[in-house]
Amino acid sequence: MVKEMDEREEIKRIIAQNRLRDKIFWILGLLFTVVGFVVLFVLLLDLFMDGLPRLKWSFFVSYPSRFPEKAGILSAWVGTALLMVVTALVAIPLGIAAGIYLEEYGRKNFITHLIEINMSNLAGVPSIIYGLLALGLFVYFFRFGESILTGGLTLGLLILPYVVIATRESIRSIPNSIREASYALGSTKWQTIRHHVLPYSLGGILTGIIIGLSRAIGETAPIITVGALTFIAFLPSSPISTSFPFLSFKWLFDPFTAMPVQMFNWISRPQKEFHLNAAACGIVLLIMTLLMNGLAIYLRYRFRKRIRW
């Protein structure tokens, strides 16, 4: 009798202990998840407190300077914008095409398998390795020099896996019945893809592109490796010219700097005043990437809500 009582007490004790552990873990989990938010918040706060006073109009329209109060990010943001143009032109068509091939055409054979393994491996290659690739391939082998073209191509290759993965996931979510309906009406494979598969998967692809470009904006290491300069007090040549043929591509071969490179340069200086400039530059950079990511999250949400198969 006493023994039975003891056993019962023992079981109660174990249950209580288990429940307590469960509760403790619940709190721990919530705490750790919140830590992420707190870090993000502190990061923003620290950056804003340091950099906000520098964020005036003149900061955006001045070149870098020896005097921290006069220095600005004009050449940096123009460089970043032009880089993004080249990056998008490389990564978007190539990435979507590769994604379509792998999902719609690729049979289960050696080549498809090879491409797939290769793609997921590329996504894990450190970004600085892309910088070394570009240094050897674009700068010295193709002789593009330390130019906007080289930088854009580098970043384009870097974000290619993002675009491919987004395209594939988006295409995969389209039910086969859509394709079969199109075939039943006599369309060819490409017509089906062009008029049905692509339009429906556009939302997902767009999300992937935006996330990829937001990565590219913040990438610093590969851009430094291919020779972005840290002090540029002029703008690349204008893409529009007054004489025929009115469009000029000389800017592609101009030396450049970019926002993250400019920020890195300012951080590496010992003077505190330059650190404030770095913070201001960081704010601009951070706002751009967070906005792009926010847009991507919103688009994903919108498209998921709108399309119901």
Partner: peptide, 24 residues
């Protein structure tokens, strides 16, 4: 809600994290 916010942590440019490490 939590997952996208956590993913924003991965979206912050690494050079900004560098600033944070050195100066904060």
């Amino acid at each position: 809600v939590a997952k996208p916010i956590l993913e924003l942590l991965a979206a912050v440019p690494t050079v900004v994290y560098g600033y944070f490490a050195l100066l904060f």
